[in-house]
Amino acid sequence: MQHEVHRGGYVALVGRPNVGKSTLLNRILGQKIAITSPKPQTTRNRILGILHRPDAQVMFLDTPGIHHAAGNKLNRYMVSQAHGAMNDVDCIMLLVEADRPVTAAEESVIRSISQSGRPALLVINKIDRVAPPALLDLIRRYSELHDFLEIVPVSALKGDGIEQLLDALLPHLPEGPPLYPEEMVTDQPERFIVAEMIREQVLKKLQKEIPYGTAVQIELFEDQPERDLVEIHAVIHVEREPHKRILVGKGGSMIRSIGQAARFDIERLLDTRVFLKLFVRVDRDWTRSDRLLREFGYE
């Protein structure tokens, strides 16, 4: 009797900031575990998302966008997370944008992939933004830069091309049994995802540089089954006193708006009512402090 081959492996999602890596991961998994926003550098940590199929189990690592890491230590940490992931996986997925020509930034990421020695697929995202002739020209240009296993056009936002992408990926993963139980979708604890959902709303509702100087810590996460409720207290850390005033807003309007939007997502995640209380604290120049970066989970 012939048994069906089961494959599994780790796959790193890499690319410049804001190319749609987290949107693609959420789409593949069919649920939200990674936050998204229109702002670059939304993702700060490597986030594991696990896809379960009868014939495969794929562990995707969503990574921070690769960018020039000049400036504070937080930026250098994020880039190191992305580069490190490329050396720890069975395969790499490079995401690029269909409506963006190949630039030095993309060529730099491709050089890093070549140096890793790992096989790579090219995923051209946001194909709904371009006409077919432009897409074909882009595919031809990338084919000249690297010997990709496959080149797959997708729209992560709309879900186009996702099954074709998985069909292209799976044959290149090693044979092996599942490594994680079927009910496990990520290795991140609920507290981490909740903190990220709060930070996501900060990114969406605030402008300019303020969102990049914020970090979120969960200080209380208490399940109260007798009330069918989870009580959560979270601190949003900022680098400057003026940033705190903007984040709180006139009469507390901004922090209430952030809390209401975050609570909606958290209740969907936890499938229960949530009482969410937010605090804002100034930690001057925390993005340059080794101690505070470790304390806030960036180590």
Rank of each mutant, 00 (worst) to 15 (best):
M1N: 05
V5Q: 11
R7S: 04
Y10G: 03
L13W: 04
V14I: 10
T23W: 13
T23V: 01
L24K: 03
R27I: 02
Q31S: 08
T36E: 09
K39I: 08
K39W: 04
T43M: 07
I50A: 04
L51S: 03
L61D: 02
L61P: 00
N72Q: 07
N75Q: 11
Y77V: 04
S80R: 15
A85N: 05
A85E: 07
N87Y: 10
V89M: 02
C91E: 14
M93R: 00
L94T: 11
E97L: 04
A98K: 10
T103G: 15
T103M: 04
T103W: 04
I113K: 03
D128N: 02
A131P: 00
A131G: 01
A134I: 12
L138N: 05
I139D: 01
R141L: 08
L145T: 05
D147C: 09
F148E: 10
L149M: 08
E150M: 11
I151F: 11
I151R: 05
V154T: 12
A156C: 06
K158E: 15
I162P: 13
L165A: 15
P171C: 03
P171D: 05
H172C: 03
G176Q: 07
E182F: 03
F192T: 06
V194N: 13
A195V: 07
K204S: 06
L206Y: 13
E209Q: 13
I210N: 09
Y212C: 09
G213N: 13
T214C: 14
V216K: 04
Q217H: 11
E219T: 15
E222P: 03
Q224D: 14
E226K: 07
R227C: 02
D228V: 01
L229Q: 09
V230R: 06
I236C: 03
I236K: 02
H237N: 12
G251Y: 11
A261M: 12
A262P: 05
D265R: 08
V274P: 15
R281W: 11
D285N: 14
D290N: 14
L293D: 10
E299S: 11
